[in-house]
Amino acid sequence: MARMKFICDSERCIECNGCVTACKAEHDVPWGVNRRRVVTLNDGQPGEKSISVACMHCSDAPCMAVCPVDCFYRTDEGVVLHDKDVCIGCGYCSYACPFGAPQFPSNGTFGLRGKMDKCTFCAGGPEANGSAAEFEKYGRNRLAEGKLPACAEMCSTKALLGGDGDVVADIFRTRVLTRNKGSEVWGWGTAYGKPTGGATPAPAKPETSKS
């Protein structure tokens, strides 16, 4: 089974927010909930770079580990999904997630956050694939339609790659080889367990999911 992963190539990302609105539009995500966002470091200075971030669908997902109601599950493709019917909106997943992926429609006074929402890798949720119920709660299920995430498919510069970990790593590796720099893979160490942190010359060979 393919193991789904994201790569955001910071040498290419231009902070155009295409990925962000692609997600919003595809899934009708409401105002205030940001499944994906783009962050720019060294803003306005030479060396400025941007990274688009959403749920990384971690191998050993902290969100999943702390959920009091165990509503997360992992698909065969390594996508970390959750069941909104079970979610109690406690916010623990958001405390645990290194990437700030889990989102809530409300602000959390009295612990009232509403059901957690996060990037599904465009893979919907526990309801029947492509059903109306699934769409209403989780948005489209593109994977089931044989498509890849909307954000990555529409990325203006192809900075954001999403799909089979082996394939995206390969595309990225080729790119790194032609340009001879910018090999660091954003967040892979944290999300997928291999140390990259910043300095490995080429993306770590993606590990296959354990579960």
Binding site: G18, T21, A22, K24, A25, A150, T157
Partner: peptide, 14 residues
């Protein structure tokens, strides 16, 4: 554009 869009293009459905 090879399928690519910026924020505005990806949101035109509105």
């Amino acid at each position: 554009n090879l399928g690519a869009h910026c924020a505005k293009g990806a949101a035109v459905r509105e």
